[in-house]
C-alpha cells in the first residue's frame, strides 16, 4: 500500500506566504518512516493534509492510487501530541473508545489500560493514560495507515516505550503503514527504518 503526495502546496488563508510548496512524499507499509523538522515548519499541516483533515490544498494526495475518501471512515488516522484535545470532555472513556470500534479485553491489556479507567472522564486521567486511549481508538480495523505527530512528546520515557511498543506490534501484525513525526532524533533512529528531513522535501 502506498500513500503518496504529489506537488502539494498550501497556505493558510490569513498568511501571505506558502507554508508548504511542492511537497512530494511517498510512504508505504514496508518501512517505518520518520519525519524530522523544526516546530512551526509545517510538519503538522502536512500530516493533516495526508490524513485528509485539510482538503483545500493544491496538488494531490493518493492512497493506493486512489484519491482519499471524502466521507466515511478515514483510513489514514492521525494521532496528535495532546490527547485531551481530541476527546469529548463530557464522555466517559468507554464511550470515547466505542466511538471508533469495539476493542477487546486483550487490546485493553496490551495497551496497559485498566478496566477502571473506562468509567472516568478524560480530565480524570493523566496525559500518558489518555494517549493510550487515543492510540487504541485510532486502531480501528479499517485503519490502514497511522501518522503519529509528536505522539509521545509530552510523555515520560517509560510511557513512551510502552505506547510505541504496543502500537508497532499492531502495525506489524496488520501490515499497516506508520509515519513517526518527531523532533527527537534519538527516537527516530531507534524505531524508524528510514527518515526524511522535512526541510529537504518542502520547497518554500
Amino acid at each position: 500500500m502506498e500513500l503518496k503526495a504529489t506537488d502539494v502546496s498550501f497556505k493558510y488563508p490569513s498568511a501571505k506566504e506558502y507554508l508548504l510548496k511542492d511537497v512530494n512524499i511517498e510512504l508505504d507499509n514496508n518501512k517505518i518512516m520518520g519525519l524530522i523538522g523544526d516546530s512551526g515548519s509545517g510538519k503538522s499541516t502536512l500530516c493533516k493534509i495526508l490524513s485528509s483533515y485539510i482538503t483545500n490544498y493544491e496538488g494531490s494526495v493518493s492512497f493506493d492510487g486512489n484519491p482519499l475518501p471524502k466521507k466515511g471512515f478515514k483510513p489514514i488516522q492521525l494521532i496528535y501530541q495532546h490527547p485531551e484535545k481530541v476527546m469529548n470532555p463530557k464522555w466517559r472513556m468507554s464511550q470515547v473508545l466505542k466511538e471508533s470500534w469495539d476493542v477487546t479485553d486483550e487490546d485493553l491489556e496490551e495497551f496497559g489500560i485498566q478496566k477502571s479507567w473506562l468509567n472516568r472522564f478524560p480530565q480524570e486521567l493523566s496525559g500518558g493514560e489518555l494517549q493510550r486511549f487515543s492510540v487504541l481508538r485510532s486502531l480501528n480495523p479499517n485503519t490502514k495507515f497511522l501518522i503519529a505527530d509528536e505522539m509521545t512528546t509530552m510523555l515520560d520515557a517509560i510511557t513512551q516505550v510502552q505506547i510505541l511498543d504496543s502500537v508497532l506490534k499492531v502495525v506489524k501484525k496488520r501490515k499497516m503503514g506508520f509515519l513517526l513525526v518527531s523532533h527527537d532524533m534519538d527516537l527516530v533512529d531507534t524505531i524508524c527504518d528510514d527518515k526524511i528531513y522535512f526541510k529537504d522535501i518542502n520547497g518554500v
Binding site: 493523566s126 515520560d156 520515557a157 510511557t159 513512551q160 516505550v161 510502552q162 534519538d186 527516537l187 531507534t190
Partner: peptide
C-alpha cells in the same frame, strides 16, 4: 528504568503505570 527507557540508552520496556 526511566533512564534506560530513553531511546539512546536502550529503549527498554517495563510494564505498569504510575498509580494515579
Amino acid at each position: 528504568a526511566l533512564y534506560k527507557a530513553l531511546p539512546k540508552n536502550g529503549f527498554e520496556l517495563i510494564k505498569g503505570h504510575q498509580p494515579l
